[in-house]
Computed example of a mutant assay.
Amino acid sequence: MKYKYLIFFKIHFLFFGIFSMKSSIRQRLEYLSNRLEEIDNILAEPNFDVETFRKLSCERSELELIANKFRDFVKLETNIKEIESFLNDKEMKELASEELLISKKRIKNLENELQILLLPSDPEDNKSLFLEIRAGTGGDESALFSLDLLRMYIRHAEQKNWYTELVSSSSSDLGGYKEAILKIDGHGAYGRLKFESGTHRVQRIPATESQGRVHTSACTVAVMVQADPMKDIVINNQDLRIDTFRASGAGGQHINKTDSAIRITHIPTGLVVECQEDRSQHRNKEKAMQILAARLKDKEVQEKRAKEATERKNLVGTGDRSERIRTYNFPQGRVTDHRINLTLYKLQSVLDGNLDELTDALISENQAEKLASLSLDE
């Protein structure tokens, strides 16, 4: 109920409050529309190199949507003025009033969409990511829940046609995971999943519970954007200690008889990464280095967020790994995201990978917060 009131407040705020079209926003939209025309004129000329063509084409694709929406906005403004001219006509007044109400709602919707499009985009959103799940409080039950979360994210990735690879894992005695790291490749993957970082709590009757009591366990999830080793993170070899060891796992003919597992320690930060999923020591080392680079970049991001959080706390969370963000309650069949007070009685659907309702709500919340921040800063 609180979430519904919050949404109502935001709709009222966006439609009737502070977000009327300001001259600075209109000037920005006019500039972008003119820039699109300029690019089209340049692309019509035959004499430019391939790299220039690529850059201009990318810029054009980014501008086209916002320019088209602004064009629709301007047309609707003109239509509203024409409709208002009929309000003094006795025969047309009633029809004009109804049409005016509809048009004003449409233009407010367009206005809100345009402001969201003007928000600075996160350059990381379209990158791949590493999703790390760690069992926390709750012992074996927490490890079993980490397996449920892993399956949930894999199924969600399958729905989005993203590629997944389990790059590192440490199994528990009952079949769950003490730790698992999943690599997800796909357009927009990080932008959709970056709000999953934090503590995920489960309330259910464990398989080992003989008296039917509900237990509470927790896992932490860390979503780390894949770092570009050439741009994002510089790792000096002298800062690394690399150890090899024999991988653990199933026996039989597949038992690892060589020291193919890799452990990399980043001495300055104390970060340790292990990888033993592959039989090749070289491939395990390559994957471990990718995870280390992602963790080092994530460390920088967390430090930056912590600094920003002292100035302004985000509604969808600071990204702090210790922050409780979501509860999965099995007896009631519900999932609650505590950051936006959203409860869905669709537990099994969510665990089957249907995360869009939660993700869309979190993205909308984040956009509304950014709009509010921009308005307060002006």
Rank of each mutant, 00 (worst) to 15 (best):
M1A: 14
K2G: 01
Y5M: 07
I11W: 07
F13D: 15
G17I: 06
G17A: 11
S20N: 14
K22D: 13
E30V: 12
L32P: 08
E38A: 13
I42P: 05
I42F: 14
A44T: 11
E45Y: 12
N47C: 02
E51V: 13
T52Q: 13
E59A: 03
E62V: 04
L65G: 11
N68P: 00
D72P: 00
L76G: 10
T78K: 13
I80A: 03
E111A: 10
L114C: 10
L119S: 12
L119K: 11
D122N: 15
D125E: 15
R134M: 02
T137C: 05
S142N: 03
A143V: 01
L149E: 00
R151F: 03
I154A: 07
I154M: 15
A157Q: 02
Q159H: 15
N161Y: 07
L174S: 10
L174R: 12
G176P: 00
A180P: 00
D185T: 09
G186M: 06
H187I: 04
G191V: 07
R192T: 08
R201D: 03
R201Q: 10
S210V: 08
C219T: 02
V221L: 04
V223R: 02
M224W: 01
Q226T: 07
P229A: 11
P229T: 09
M230V: 12
K231M: 05
L240G: 08
T244G: 04
G249T: 12
G249D: 12
G252R: 02
H254C: 01
N256L: 02
D259Q: 08
I264D: 11
I264Q: 08
T269L: 05
Q276F: 08
Q276T: 06
L292K: 04
A293Y: 02
A294E: 08
A294N: 06
L296K: 04
K299G: 03
E300R: 13
Q302E: 12
E308I: 00
T310P: 00
E311S: 13
R312D: 10
R312L: 09
G319I: 04
G319M: 06
R321M: 01
E323V: 00
R324L: 11
R324Y: 03
G333F: 09
R334G: 00
H338T: 04
I340H: 04
L347K: 12
G353W: 14
G353V: 07
I363H: 09
S364A: 15
Q367P: 00
E369H: 08
S373D: 15
S375I: 04
